[in-house]
Design a protein around this nucleic acid. Structure first.
Lengths: 201, 201
DNA sequence: TCGGTTTTGGACTTGCAGGTCCATTTTTGC
DNA sequence: GCAAAAATGGACCTGCAAGTCCAAAACCGA
């Protein structure tokens, strides 16, 4: 798979992925032509097909993976350490901050349905991202339960699923309306309700 | 605007929109060619451009509006009458049922970012849909507050925003994972938390 | 230094899908 | 019934963007 790639080649490949990702974030997936990527990264068509023999399809997949990883990385170190209430709030703030800055430029947008149904690969990347994301949240909830900061009778997985869904919807609404209000509301209210459960316990 | 459209013309136009919508639901926006629509609806290219002078762009917009209206219509009469707890639960059930049936075939998918940034019109349609949707939920909450079934100190608009975001995210996760669990979780937990507020009051 | 391999540049091909055009048929209003 | 307007069918055009190909340059390990 990763056969025969010199250091230089590796660098070029990375440059292509990063450049394509930037371009896509800026103008949307299906507005980006290979020529745009070439111009933006200072590469030739020969290079593109050299590093991505499957053409645009393969490049898009690589970009998607790159962006998916980035989404999670941007939430660290909070996401992996949801062990106290301040940590949860810091995570919340990071999310707001991140998406506020991103605005309507969603890197993974358009990967569902469209490319998603076309390429099972894209579907897998998104599913994988969601899976990892939810797992981290679930672990956070479990930890809080173990310290008695959240109600023990709460279904951690279900609560994490709901929170994840809320976040996704908040982002989606940010994309369509340009306002971050929904994301803020869903984060605050959901986290509050997790907190409320603890008082009972 | 709607100048010179005989009954027959009206019917043909409607047939095109409905057929295109079906095709798009089935195979995704950018997998559908005008030729597919022609085949599926038994129309010719001349007709397509006769009824949609702006070409594909215009047709897509019409389809989007059609689907957006459908989304809300499918939630009636529950959505406009969220006046009792049973009504809320019936609405919840209808949503699950509707999206369960729909599965991964999202009619409005791909309208964000991509076409969304390309056509301000598409953006407007989605925004409008969300706006109407949230308004209905807000009204339901307000009504429940007026009868004392929900806590009066609750910010109805904010709660509605959060619930709407949750639904959107749940649907998005249905699209990417194929499982309806997230939607169920977010609906149940969010509605429960609205209910919990009332006990305090 | 040298042979093989990777990297690079860019001209060229190709298929396709959106859009144009017009000739023909059907409908409408009077 | 008849002219004008709308509806229909389908051949044709056109541009673009993905993908192909190959020859030249840079690079690597002995």
């Amino acid at each position: 798979m990763t056969r025969a790639l010199t250091r230089k080649g590796e660098a070029t490949r990375a440059r292509i992925v990063a450049g394509a990702a930037a371009e896509i974030r800026e103008r949307g997936v299906d507005e980006v032509r290979l020529e745009d990527v070439m111009a933006h990264t200072g590469t030739s068509k020969g290079q593109l097909f050299h590093y991505f023999p499957d053409g645009k399809e393969g490049l898009l997949l690589a970009v998607a993976q790159h962006e998916a990883d980035q989404v999670l990385a941007d939430q660290e170190p909070m996401l992996s350490n949801l062990t106290t209430w301040p940590a949860w709030l810091a995570w919340r703030d990071r999310l707001i901050e991140r998406y506020q800055a991103q605005g309507v430029k969603c890197p993974l947008n358009g990967l569902l349905g469209q490319t998603g149904r076309r390429a099972p690969g894209a579907q897998a990347i998104v599913t994988g991202l969601m899976w990892r994301w939810q797992k981290a949240i679930t672990e956070g909830i479990r930890h809080m339960q173990s310290t008695g900061d959240m109600a023990g009778d709460l279904d951690a997985d279900r609560a994490a699923a709901a929170l994840l869904a809320g976040i996704q919807g908040g982002v989606l609404l940010l994309l369509s309306t340009g306002k971050i209000d929904h994301l803020e509301a869903v984060l605050d209210l959901t986290i509050d309700s997790l907190r409320a459960g603890a008082r009972t316990a």
